[in-house]
Design a protein around this nucleic acid. Structure first.
Lengths: 200, 200
DNA sequence: GAGATACACGGAGGTCCCTCCGCTTTCCCC
DNA sequence: GGGGAAAGCGGAGGGACCTCCGTGTATCTC
């Protein structure tokens, strides 16, 4: 219920620990990717990252089967900060406001992340996410929804997974759309959908 | 306010009419694409479509700069049917129910369309849409929202563009996600967000 | 420490995407 | 119908993605 991101020496859960060379290469790849993302604004061929890291392209793909997996590894630390903030917000605000605040927090993170990365292949994969990350997001949303159901500020009959889907879809849609359009009104609509209101 | 899709001999609005060979090629490409989509379930290289149509790949790209543009040309007729159904639903149902019904109608269309096509490059472009199509969708949503605002069944303070974004984002998110998950609960949430409810 | 074994590496190569520009065809005007 | 300009055509070619499998190397066992 409170998954934290995997320790650097055990990056994929309960499997046998990685071999020493594999762990070294993995770290090199993430470093190279981070540097490349920062340096060139995101439009970096994976081949380049592999070369920069001093590994073959095959090695990169074995560690990170999709581009998004690599992106998430690079930003794992920041994602921790974002998910942690849910608990803090919930302690300070009523659940509906906490939800709103957390959505905006996450949206900023996602926008910054994708802004620097997904220019790559126009509109590609913006907002896509690997299963573990998705589950972490859903867990935070569930926590807030439960608190909201107890206090009466939010509906009790909504599946947190559905909220995650709605949220990530919104990120995809806004990331690929025109940059003038703001995401906040959409987040507000999502929160409104979750408030107990007129009889449904 | 009621854009219908362009006539076949004037496919891109008010510009000079296409040259005869261009129009012929354009039609050939759409035919070939339709056949290819139906035949092979969607994973068709654009090169193949061009060859099948008897044109060069450059010609295909001039007519349809993105894959989605080609997809939309293939399905233009069906989209007409979908947008037309908005008016019919609005005549038969209260606006909130009409909205719900129309969203489901459109979702079925989008799912079928993408189900047969976007397998292509895993998760690519599902739900993306060209500007004219997007505007048509927004126009229908606006019509329903206006009716809802008059009858009091829907909020009056929502930008139809935002609803479009939410909707298309939802399609993207569900098209790429696991197929077991249903889109209907998400559409219900969107409609709920648009109902006048507790003071905001 | 030597042998065995599974794990991991690397990069060549096939596929697809998409641009670019010299050539061809249509259309307009006389 | 003939000439010229504008519109359109085609496909070679370069770039990126991603797979596949022969080779190399860490780890385990004795």
């Amino acid at each position: 219920m409170t998954p934290t991101h995997p320790a650097p020496d055990d990056p994929c859960g309960p499997g046998r620990p990685l071999r020493a060379d594999a762990r070294r290469n993995r770290e090199r790849i993430v470093s190279a990717a981070r540097a490349a993302f920062i340096a060139s604004g995101g439009a970096v061929p994976l081949d380049d990252i592999a070369r920069e890291a001093g590994v073959g392209i095959g090695t990169l793909y074995r560690h990170f089967p999709t581009r998004e997996a690599l992106v998430e590894a690079v930003y794992a630390g920041e994602l921790d900060t974002v998910t942690d903030s849910a608990r803090r917000l919930l302690a300070e605000l009523p659940p509906d406001e906490a939800l709103r605040a957390w959505l905006e927090r996450y949206a900023r993170f996602a926008a910054a992340k994708h802004g620097t990365i997904d220019t790559l292949r126009a509109g590609w994969a913006a907002g896509r996410i690997t299963a573990p990350t998705r589950e972490r997001v859903t867990a935070e949303i569930r926590t807030i929804l439960v608190a909201g159901a107890e206090s009466g500020a939010l509906r009790a009959d909504v599946d947190p997974e559905d909220v995650t889907t709605l949220l990530l879809g919104t990120f995809q849609a806004t990331a690929t759309g025109d940059p003038g359009r703001r995401v906040e009104p959409l987040l507000a609509l999502i929160v409104d959908a979750l408030r107990p209101g007129t009889p449904r």
